[in-house]
């Protein structure tokens, strides 16, 4: 047990920054991110003695964070949104030829996505996970991940006032 405690302590010491950043992107709130990571670590700790590979431990904690957050959102569906430090920006429609980069930011719009869509966006574009890896964390099919991702991108484009084609790679 002492060895497991030492390994757990080392893991928390070395990996908390990275995991906290993911938690922040998932929640949009720094205090909630701290709570989420702590909850995930609490869930993961009993299994620590049986986890041999540090990467597997990190994957387990990340999975616990995503699933815990979704269960919180289900339990508190009436809360709808998390409190933000500042109100989200309201993106303006962009005229053809305008410099989109300088006028709008995507992060405030990402915060408004439903939990599963936001989780997919964070795992795919921040964690750089594949669709099967994302599906495993969410506990759903690869097709569902594709669907969540497509809907999230559609929402982002719509909120930016951009036609679908404008964002497609040439």
């Amino acid at each position: 047990m002492a060895r497991a405690d030492a390994a757990f302590t080392e893991f928390v010491t070395t990996r908390s920054v990275s995991l906290l950043r993911t938690a922040y992107l998932l929640t949009g709130d720094r205090h909630l991110a701290e709570d989420l990571l702590q909850t995930a670590l609490t869930k993961a700790y009993p299994l620590w003695g049986g986890i041999r590979e540090p990467r597997a431990a990190e994957s387990y904690v990340r999975t616990a964070m995503v699933r815990t957050l979704i269960s919180w959102r289900k339990r508190h569906s009436w809360t709808r949104e998390t409190a933000f430090a500042a109100p989200p920006e309201h993106p303006q429609a962009v005229a053809p030829g305008d410099d989109i980069e300088s006028r709008t930011r995507l992060w405030p719009i990402v915060l408004t996505l439903p939990p599963r869509q936001r989780a997919v966006v964070v795992l795919r574009y921040y964690e750089d996970l594949t669709e099967p890896q994302t599906a495993e964390i969410l506990g759903c099919s690869t097709g569902a991940v594709k669907s969540h991702n497509a809907r999230a991108l559609h929402t982002l484009r719509a909120r930016l006032g951009e036609p679908e084609d404008a964002w497609r790679s040439s």
Partner: peptide, 17 residues
Amino acid sequence: PLEDRLRTELSEEAEAV
């Protein structure tokens, strides 16, 4: 390009934490 921007902005937001 939208996905590229997502990568960039999410990284920027995360690094501020």
